[in-house]
Design a protein around this nucleic acid. Sequence first.
DNA 1: GTGTTTGTTATCAA
DNA 2: CTTGATAACAAACA
Length: 291
Amino acid sequence: MPELPEVETVRRDLSAFTGHKIVALKILSPKSALPSAAFLKKNLLGQKLTKIDRRGKLLILSLASGKFLLIHLKMTGQLIYETKQMRVVGGHSLSDGSWEKSVGGKLPNRQTRAIFDFENGGRLFFNDLRKFGYLKLVDGPELKRILETSYGPEPLTKELTPEYLERVFKSRRITIKAALLNQKLIAGLGNIYVDEALFAANIRPQRVAGKVSKKELTGLISEINRIIKLAIKNRGTTFSNYVDSRGRRGNFSRLLKVYGRSKEPCFVCGREISKIKLSGRGTHYCAHCQK
DNA sequence: GTGTTTGTTATCAA
DNA sequence: CTTGATAACAAACA
């Protein structure tokens, strides 16, 4: 489940490989390519990749042509980059053994939906078990429209203030959990980091968003920022199948306090972590610590 | 065969 | 117009 820290980790890693031309593109799953596989090929072949940005959980790859390739990993997407050197040495066994714990075998594999070959011999694999993710080619105006209509402020920016959250939550009768999952209100959080942030801020996920006090929102923002920063530092969380651009798992998993810890003891009070369903999502919290 | 996992959008309802 | 609830999407696993 790639959320902001996981997508940011991939973005930073892949940025090291920008500046090269795409010399071949294989699309193995046409439905993963928007608006169509043919359109992507036409617009990507021979194009230089100039930089990679991120907004929320969306990767934005800039092309020399002025167009943009948007990549969303959704739930099970992976972007794995192989250098020419890695293939020459025969696969993915790095000296630190990191490949053994992750995708293991050779690429492409059954989950591979697209393969980019670069001029420098590098190869980028887009894997996606469940095919929710996509590669989407857009022009400048469409990118602008998407960014303006789909994303609220990012964590770790000055735009995310208690005054802002107070204003956009005020009229809302949804739960604070649902509000934090809404990318239009705040960008980048998903199920894992929402549960973690609410635990750290001592706020019950089922509270009505509009009734959370400004003081609590202030604390919540500070916990969101702290956790997101720490998670990026730890290269994200691997819960199901997230791996970074070299196929390695994230290290934040061992720092999770509530997510995936149903019935285990709360690290603060020792009581059992509860698990309920909110907005159709598994929701983990401590009924004693969170008010 | 059933339930569960989740990011995002479409759809419908109030 | 706004807001919210829910299904749908896809594939694997217990």
